[in-house]
Amino acid sequence: MKEYKVQEWTKIPYFNHDKKLTKTIQCSSQSRGLSPLAFAWRKLRNTILYKRAFMCPLNGWRVKMHRKRGVTIGDNVYIGMRCVLDNAYPEYLHIEDNVSLAGGVTLIAHANPYPHFQNIVESAAAPIVIKTGAWVGENATILRGVTIGENAIVSAGTIVDKDVPDYSMAKGNPMKIVAEYSALMDN
């Protein structure tokens, strides 16, 4: 896989979502450092691609569409149907080679709470890195700032809110590391 630059934690400034559409586009584009027109075009294109990829029956097409949206995706990657790869910040998702995401997996690279929560949760986007050979089970949810290690397994339905080490299995809610199998892998 080509070298890629992992995005850094970025604060999301607050704005009133209830105002006119033009105001929303202006504020959103400012926080991403884009011109309003470029942002509006990108948002429209990404939403169409995301909706197409959501129900597309061919894996090759799904992967291509997610790449077009700005997600970093390596070779030989499987992305199941009904996967939600963050529509607001797709550039914060990094998926390396030989990764398998089963159906219905959700990757959310940001949290944007209202300002009265500012002392509790930081409003920011953070990268999600899924390293070579990892396997994520059906309907797992991966939250911002998480790194899933090489050849790690995330069990179905797990909510991943902290890092998963290499060669280990994460399971349950709240998530626990239940097994380690580095000795069993051929390497």
């Binding site: 299995m169 239940v178 097994a179 380690e180 199998y181 580095s182 000795a183 069993l184």
Partner: peptide, 18 residues
């Protein structure tokens, strides 16, 4: 199956047998 995985890993680590 998780206990099984732990046993397989232990055998591979301590006895060098897969």
């Amino acid at each position: 199956s998780l206990t099984g995985l732990a046993i397989l890993n232990m055998v591979a680590k301590k006895y060098g047998v897969k």
